[in-house]
Design a protein around this nucleic acid. Sequence first.
DNA 1: TTCAATACATAGATTTGTGATGTATTAAAA
DNA 2: TTTTAATACATCACAAATCTATGTATTGAA
Lengths: 117, 117
Amino acid sequence: MNSTELIKGTLTTIILKLLADNGKMYGYEITQRVKELSDNKILIKEGSLYPALHKLLKDGLVQVETVNIGKRIRKYYSITKQGELKKQVQSDELKEFLQTIHGMIFPQQDLLSNDVG
Amino acid sequence: MNSTELIKGTLTTIILKLLADNGKMYGYEITQRVKELSDNKILIKEGSLYPALHKLLKDGLVQVETVNIGKRIRKYYSITKQGELKKQVQSDELKEFLQTIHGMIFPQQDLLSNDVG
DNA sequence: TTCAATACATAGATTTGTGATGTATTAAAA
DNA sequence: TTTTAATACATCACAAATCTATGTATTGAA
């Protein structure tokens, strides 16, 4: 997640969305899935992800289940009911923000187009 | 600009874009224009704007011209050639980011739609 | 057997924007 | 006429979020 400074404020929304869609995921899996879904554009660093997950846990938005895979540990995270609510609010806010910024910086342009501004 | 944490990293892009479009603008005018263009959704605080302008100035991306309006001071900022280049790069990055995030959080949805996710 | 990938974690530094505060002019309202 | 709101600049201490660097350890592939 070093390519831009733009990700700030979207990380927890991304995590909650992924957990809402996929049921259970563990940390490393989340980083890989984000990388894949963003076509290598968003690379979440471990130093960002784990603190973010711990905060979500502390805030009751996700819950965790530790599983042993051989001698290796995996912590599966899943979203809570409270997390679902939060996800919805944050998604709505994010969408409004995307629309607002897009309208300001790229007026009269469709988001999916590749027009030269 | 307190409504979301999402603005991080977009402020200088917004400023450069406004200056590129409008020639000269002074600080207070920028805050008002952003408020207006964003339909009151993005409220740039003075504590954010002035340091941002000073940094842009220091980096040679904008230039300044001080004007006296009666006994009141106005500092008109305009974009430099270097600032134009930067604006272009940042706009392109921002657009790609908007597309990426939108595609991740709202798949199969048009940005301008108001579908319930 | 060595390297890359998997899998967790934390600490310190950095960046960015906010809130609070300050000074001062001008115009409108009470 | 006095008070308030708007205009217009500015800075500083603070908080929040992420990154860099670093650490440990397992597993599979070269």
